[in-house]
């Protein structure tokens, strides 16, 4: 019984963090223009993948957060869902096989995941007939800036997570 309650609590915690991330991203991107370059749902998918190192919950988290992103951005449902699912899985596999505790490793991973997400979402967009008019140069620039921003914010978030873990393990 206690086990079931703790599982439900864990699912509730994940659900709240997923919804909160999409809501906060939407509001901040509207209030602060620069926040449009950040991708909090992607950072969250990588964060859970790295810290848990468990592929199944990471896939579910990535899938759910991607669908929420699709609904609020007007993209075909499944575009970000597909991409974030894959990112969640790859982050969890990387988290279980490699040492992702180093800040530099995390920053590089977040940068690469951001660019990979951009490429995959664009390819899926082309396949579903919603090809953007944007020039390749400006799109590439957006991915690179976003990758750098996500790496920076991700490093801060992971650092905060490490400090909390360190404090609670004492």
């Amino acid at each position: 019984m206690t086990g079931r309650i703790s599982t439900l609590g864990l699912i509730g915690k994940f659900a709240i963090s997923l919804i909160a991330v999409v809501v906060v991203q939407g509001i901040l991107a509207y209030r602060l223009r620069v926040f449009g370059y950040f991708d909090l749902p992607l950072i969250l998918s990588v964060y859970y993948g790295f810290t848990m190192g468990r592929p199944i919950p990471s896939v579910i988290i990535g899938s759910a957060v991607g669908l929420m992103q699709d609904s609020m951005s007007g993209a075909p449902m499944g575009t970000n869902g597909f991409s974030k699912t894959l990112i969640g899985y790859l982050a969890a596999m990387a988290g279980s096989k490699f040492d992702v505790d180093l800040p530099l490793t995390r920053a590089i991973a977040l940068f690469l995941f951001t660019v990979g997400d951009g490429v995959l979402v664009s390819i899926l967009g082309q396949m579903t007939g919603v090809a953007p008019n944007a020039k390749l140069g400006s799109t590439l620039w957006t991915w690179l800036v976003s990758g750098a921003f996500n790496a920076l914010l991700g490093m801060l978030m992971f650092g905060y997570h490490d400090r909390i873990n360190h404090a609670t393990s004492r």
């Binding site: 999409v22 951005s73 993209a75």
Partner: peptide, 15 residues
């Protein structure tokens, strides 16, 4: 009233 912006990098959309 506008309550939010697209949470995705690719789309320029408002809620």
């Amino acid at each position: 009233r506008i309550v939010g912006k697209s949470p995705s990098l690719t789309g320029q959309a408002l809620t």
